[in-house]
């Protein structure tokens, strides 16, 4: 699975704009958990303490915003 990382978050991925994570074909939540294991600095910048995606962070699966297609 390939994640495309926006510019301001690339300081947490060693400057990489794309990172490939072997996360299988599970849910978005499982894929993000795998991403955050590899790059732990991304987690608190994407979600708050309650695990909610921050208001001005959008996660797209292909062209679809996860907020419009069932969340995690």
């Amino acid at each position: 699975m390939v994640f495309f990382i926006p510019g301001p978050l690339r300081e947490q991925t060693g400057g990489r704009a794309q990172v490939r994570i072997d996360a299988g074909a599970g849910t978005l939540g499982e894929a993000l958990a795998a991403l955050w294991r590899e790059y732990p600095g991304l987690r608190d910048r994407m979600v708050n303490e309650q695990g909610e995606v921050r208001q001005h962070v959008n996660i797209f699966i292909g062209d679809e915003n996860m907020r419009d297609c069932g969340g995690f």
Binding site: P8, L9, D44, R45, M46, N48, R54, Q55, H56, V57
Partner: peptide, 8 residues
């Protein structure tokens, strides 16, 4: 303490 509008 810094607050980024998107990243907390």
């Amino acid at each position: 303490a810094s607050t980024h509008f998107a990243f907390g």
